[in-house]
Design a protein around this nucleic acid. Structure first.
Length: 107
DNA sequence: GATTTGACTACTA
DNA sequence: GTAGTAGCCAAAT
């Protein structure tokens, strides 16, 4: 595809996250070859907020919904995750290791 | 045009 | 085991 851009890749990978799964910024960044550019993933998702990218499936490596403050609603992100079967308590994903989806590994 | 901030992560002390 | 710093690159001020 012609979308060899960093942002586009983030959109693709994030959009490929299976139902009921989550991933971390570092995992995506690592898949793109920028293990320490996790911040760029966040920036990309910020732009993808208007796209079809399920940014609610992307959290930091601790499984914490750090980006929920950037969503329209405060609890929208958690609502979506719980809606998909993801257990979220206090903005933190439970069983994060079990539902963690690693691009490049499963992809 | 330079400085600061930002949805983070990993290493070092 | 906890705390602080460094690294990433792009957008906003």
């Amino acid at each position: 595809m012609s979308d060899t851009g960093f942002f586009e890749k983030v959109y693709q990978v994030t959009a490929l996250i299976p139902y009921g799964r989550v991933t971390s910024y570092g995992a995506i960044a690592n898949y793109l070859g920028a293990s320490r550019s996790a911040r760029m993933v966040g920036w990309a998702l910020n732009n993808s907020n208007k796209a079809e990218v399920p940014a609610h499936r992307v959290v930091n490596r601790k499984g914490l919904l750090t980006g929920k403050h950037h969503f329209k609603g405060s609890n929208l992100m958690q609502q979506l995750l719980e809606s998909e079967g993801v257990v979220v308590v206090d903005n933190q994903i439970q069983d994060f290791d079990k539902i963690f989806w690693d691009p490049g590994r499963e992809l």
